[in-house]
Design a protein around this nucleic acid. Structure first.
Lengths: 212, 212
DNA sequence: CATCACACCTGTTAG
DNA sequence: TCTAACAGGTGTGAT
């Protein structure tokens, strides 16, 4: 769906993530003080851990925000400003058209980008989603019914693979589209090397802040 | 019943008084999201002025609070943090067993305890309730039916005298029990001087903050 | 449009 | 140690 580079406020004491209006209205459930005050959105992360957030519209600031649950996510993932969160919507490819939502993080280099050193200009961090492994064996804790999201996008997606591309620090931060799992239109690695600082999930995330 | 030393939040902009769970469950009406959301408790102060508070349980914070009406009480009594509120339940001694509830305040010294100067160590403020004068002559505004309070305690009490002892800053903040009016088990003054900073209502409350 | 009042929420901390 | 209680916050609706 989209990514957002986190601001200091997003990871600070405000306990909320501002969803850019453009993406909120496009991808998130409709909430403008209607249909009660309870809109919960559900995601799973790359480790299949469920994350539930309260999503609401603050008309005082005229902004769409993720509130309850967001702070725990920040803490547990040890997110800091300049890190990026990515929101994906994925569909099962077994004909049931069940949709689930993924949330992932792209950590920002702590100042310089030695670790990925292709070209200069660290701006334009590109996150390439890869390797979400949605486990389906266990009881699938209480049926994520697409997390309440709309389905105007036609992204169909495999169970075990999520491939998408997003640019964080520019206007075009929409993730290009979710592709089917079994038919991969682009090779997952080595082909996207357009010298723009491409990073693969599962590779560079094993930094000093990530204990796993 | 009990006393509570007010926190900055209790007298601040939150407009609520947190009732410690222990005392709420013991003395206050049962409110756990049942019987609607409207539980009113009624008190009179030492001047026989009626005070009505909304009492409710916030399940989000799992705390019992006095909300509506509390702010006015704080304002009019000019309460500040470290002041203490005392809640009493009293019964008429005319055989009718009618119960009414009293709320009183114990003002904290503004930093040092010059005004009471017995020993050092201002901690352990002792409040000795004395001299509530419940006027019964006038129509007794609309029959306080014990304010909706339970009666598991056996405090029987005279109309004109309330004698009780409570320690504010220690664990034992329950007021020891309401005693009958005509039989005073302890002398009201001069006998409790165990060098612990004992303060009598009606004596030290006439400090610089009390205009009356 | 301010301020108040209320019902949520969370980090801290004491037991 | 871990949990529950609560002190200190928030946004929202009412006024």
């Amino acid at each position: 769906m989209f990514v957002k580079e986190l601001t200091p406020s997003d990871v600070g004491k405000l306990n909320r993530l501002v969803i850019p209006k453009k993406h909120a209205t496009q991808y998130f459930p409709q909430v403008v003080a209607e249909t009660a005050d309870e809109v919960q959105v559900e995601f799973v992360d790359r480790e299949d851990r469920p994350w539930t957030f309260r999503y609401c519209y603050w008309k005082s600031s005229q902004s769409y925000v993720l509130t309850k649950g967001w702070n725990k996510f920040v803490k547990e993932k040890r997110l800091r400003a300049k890190d990026t969160v990515a929101f994906y919507r994925c569909e099962e490819s077994d004909g049931h058209r069940r949709t689930y939502c993924l949330i992932d993080i792209i950590r920002h280099n702590g100042g310089d980008d030695r670790s990925c050193g292709s070209s200069r200009s660290t701006s334009g961090v590109i996150g390439l989603g890869l390797g979400f492994k949605r486990k389906m064996e266990k009881g699938d804790e209480e049926d994520h019914r697409s997390g309440g999201f709309s389905r105007d996008k036609n992204g169909v997606m495999g169970v075990a693979l999520d491939l998408s591309l997003g640019r964080a620090t520019e206007k075009k931060d929409d993730i290009g589209g979710v592709v089917t799992g079994s038919t991969v239109p682009r090779k997952s690695s080595e082909t996207q090397d357009k010298n723009k600082g491409l990073k693969l999930f599962g590779v560079w995330i094993a930094d000093e802040n990530d204990r796993r």
